[in-house]
Amino acid sequence: MKDPELLYLVGGVVAVLIVATLITKLLIRKSGETPVLVNLRQRVNAWWWMMVVFCSSLALGRGGVFGFYALLSFLALREFITLSPTPRGDHRTLTWVFFLILPLHFVFAGAPWYGMFLIWIPVYAFVFIPIRSALAGDTERFLERTARIQWGVLTCVYFLSHLPMLLYLPIPGYQQEENAKLLFFVVLVTQLSDVMQYVFGKLFGKTKIAPKVSPSKTREGLLYGGAAATLIGTSLWWATPFSPAVAAGMSALLVAAGFFGGLVMSAVKRSLGAKDWGRGIPGHGGVLDRLDSLLFAGPLFFHVTGYYFGTNMNTAYSQPQWMHDALRLWMGG
């Protein structure tokens, strides 16, 4: 938070929120507390709280950021799992998931041990989950139940954890302390794309893209809102290691990934018979309703950026010596 450019970004968002708050108050004073305006006020207030929490995590350094995203993963996975009934046979599996697999994943990420970060969930956890569920002896809808847990862990934990990993991404000519701006850029552009698509969809939306999956998503909202978010992202190239042209391409990638991430998670949500993932954030639904667009945007941006700059995370962040010594001691070596 000592980076002047990061402070400019934060100040810009705060200024927008102040304007949004004033406009909302004026509209309510003029038209009264209609359902639409009450929802708008709830959304703006929720954005204030989310901005405060996000910036507080940045102020605490890498440890604060990884702790913040570990908590978000826990809350998101909890919403995902509790949205549908969980058979008794899966209870012990979920205990392992919440209190061992998830925390260890963020330990490996924060250490950082990049190799284990990559394979801990898609290899070790995905092998362990069906084994533990099979040992419970409940075979009814076994494949469906196991796949649901694995999908929740993949999206809510593994995909989301790529966002704090941006703090470790080696970029030539870019001080690693500046990587917080890259994280801010991803979150800002992706979330702005959601807001712009919602606004333009309400104003000009006529052609629904997938009405049975997400009735509010329209072709006009995606086109105009995505273009607006891409322009804003391009204008912020000075806070990134990208040229204006590359910043435009990366912003477009975030818009597309965010849109399809939200669409896929809406399809999952509808298949479970729910409108929202939860009620934890007034005006926004649950935590997962606010994070769904970031689930696809985070890992795609992380790996595309790493490929663009030719970084080798596995070489830069091999197993830390302290972790190597601890594992040898635990194994009796």
Rank of each mutant, 00 (worst) to 15 (best):
L102P: 06
H105Y: 05
A76M: 13
I81R: 05
E79T: 11
D90R: 07
T86S: 01
L60G: 02
R88Q: 15
S57I: 12
R88E: 13
T93E: 02
G67Q: 03
S56A: 15
F66Y: 04
F106I: 05
L100G: 04
C55E: 14
F98C: 05
G89V: 07
F98E: 03
V97S: 07
R78G: 09
G64S: 11
A76W: 07
R78I: 05
V97T: 13
L94T: 04
Y69H: 14
S84H: 06
F80A: 14
G64K: 08
A59R: 09
L104Q: 00
R92D: 07
A70S: 01
S56T: 14
L94D: 06
I101E: 13
F68G: 07
H105E: 04
R88Y: 13
L104R: 00
G63V: 12
P103A: 08
V107A: 02
F74I: 11
A70G: 00
R78W: 13
S57K: 15
R78P: 03
F66N: 00
P87Q: 04
R88S: 14
I101R: 12
F108R: 01
I101P: 07
P87L: 08
L102K: 10
L102D: 08
S84F: 04
F99N: 12
W96S: 14
G67M: 04
L77Y: 01
G89Q: 08
L83V: 06
P103Q: 05
L60M: 12
L94M: 09
G61P: 10
R92P: 01
L72H: 01
T86F: 01
L58D: 04
F74T: 11
F98A: 04
L77M: 02
A70D: 00
R62M: 06
T82H: 08
P103L: 03
I81W: 03
R62N: 08
P87N: 05
T95V: 12
S73C: 11
G64D: 07
G89D: 08
L100A: 15
F98P: 01
S84A: 15
V65R: 08
P87Y: 06
